[in-house]
Nucleic acid binder design. Structure first.
Lengths: 253, 253
DNA sequence: CCGAGGCTTCGGTGGCCGCCGAAACATCGG
DNA sequence: CCGATGTTTCGGCGGCCACCGAAGCCTCGG
């Protein structure tokens, strides 16, 4: 509710309900939104890193982080003189993704050649909190669908064949224990505008891809690049074409 | 992004990405948020209705509706001198729900006896865009789970038995044709904080419940009340207890 | 044709909030 | 103990934006 009529308003407006506006307000600022998007890489950042990344003064960043933490979106962990923050949990990440995938794409002008490289690398393969995203991830998802490892008839789900396939690959047990976190979930890819695999299975697959050296992180960004091992594996196992697997430029970082 | 440094900022902040802040900004205002929550009943409202409901002047409402429409959250339809608006689609509704279920509950002070009645009726049974919500909906979801009509092993999904059960009830075909709208989806219930059935199946079940007279809408609100027919049916079919099915007060509207 | 009612446009006002820099505080390494 | 570095607090500034009322436009029903 707003300025002029603080008291008599709420009677008409709402009874009881979620305080949507306060939550949305946290993400309604460009700087805070950029922070959350950066944290979608699933790792912990320090306050200074986020300040530099978003281009604001450290003091400004402090204020924003306070709001995000006390709003429950971020979890913080202090280590010595550092303040590390990360997204509060996978449900928070999923909420932000859900919002982000509905948001209009903002086409930031490309300023330099490395900008262009980075942009293409990001579109090709990256992490999205705890799972893979980008062209490669979409291709994996679609290839799994073609091979009936993934079915869509009753909502996205892993088939029996899919379970076996994952087990044979050595992907460790991905059943959510106790929690009701969706086993298979899809997430609209920003760049592709097509769904990619998320949820517990998506997270397990991503973890395995990193552990087994299919992909490696580039620097401290969300970008990952395919290794030769990963390339042949995805080609042999899922029939993904070389063209799709080849990144336009892998050395932008 | 903000005031002081309009140009040099974006280079550092973001390359390309969803404009999260502008979308969140639409929901960050109490009045607009209340409008969207009201529209979660899935129907079309006129501008004046929304103005009265949120307690602002008609001119103010006009401005808000313009923003929401041009932001793509609402669809409008003009009929004569009326301006009807509704949520743009089920994906929009799902995004708002996702946000709402993560938002803190705002406990509005209860001002009157009818407020209290309405509040209880809302908690008991209501619609949530195109599916059912509230105590009753959660009970249906949990009873379906107990009877293995709904499985959670690989994410929420309808079992074969569940499909047969729905068909026998006369629920018309709920398979999404063409679209990849999730067949079975869950939605965190605001009041119960437990998941209830949503997605295409949830919508089909809700439609059937209205058509077959299990529940009827009360006035022009989101509240629905169980009919005797619905009560016996849910008891016989799913074993839901009388206690759960009995609304504390059904005549608040 | 005329009134009523829904909706819109337009100024003007006021509060909220994001921004910064300076100074203080905490921690780490020597 | 002392400088360097990360973080926080504070005061002040400035822009954005939600609000209203008045006046005008459009449609409907008599």
């Amino acid at each position: 509710m707003s300025k002029h009529t603080p008291s008599p308003r709420s009677a008409a407006t709402g009874l009881v309900g979620p305080d949507l506006a306060s939550l949305a307000g946290l993400l309604a600022d460009g700087t805070r939104a950029a922070m959350c998007l950066a944290l979608l890489d699933g790792r912990a950042w320090t306050a200074t890193e986020l300040a530099r990344h978003t281009g604001v003064a450290p003091s400004t960043a402090t204020g924003h982080l306070h709001q995000l933490v006390s709003g429950g979106l971020l979890a913080e962990e202090r280590q010595g003189r550092h303040r590390y923050v990360r997204l509060a949990g996978s449900d928070t990440a999923e909420m932000i993704e859900s919002l982000a995938s509905h948001a209009p794409l903002r086409d930031t002008p490309v300023r330099s050649l490395t900008d262009a490289h980075r942009r293409r690398a990001l579109a090709h393969a990256r992490t999205c909190y705890d799972h893979l995203a980008g062209t490669v991830a979409v291709a994996i998802t679609e290839a799994m669908t073609e091979r009936s490892l993934l079915t869509w008839d009753y909502g996205p789900a892993l088939s029996e064949a899919g379970r076996v396939w994952l087990r044979d690959l050595g992907v460790e047990d991905h059943r959510p224990r106790g929690s009701r976190r969706a086993h298979v979930r899809t997430c609209l890819d920003w760049t592709e505008r097509r769904p990619h695999l998320a949820g517990a299975v998506g997270a397990a697959l991503c973890q395995h891809a990193l552990d087994d050296g299919w992909v490696i992180r580039r620097g401290s960004s969300r970008v990952v690049t395919l290794t030769p091992h990963g390339r042949t594996l995805l080609h042999d196992q899922l029939g993904i074409t070389e063209e799709t697997l080849t990144s336009p430029d892998t050395d932008a970082f």
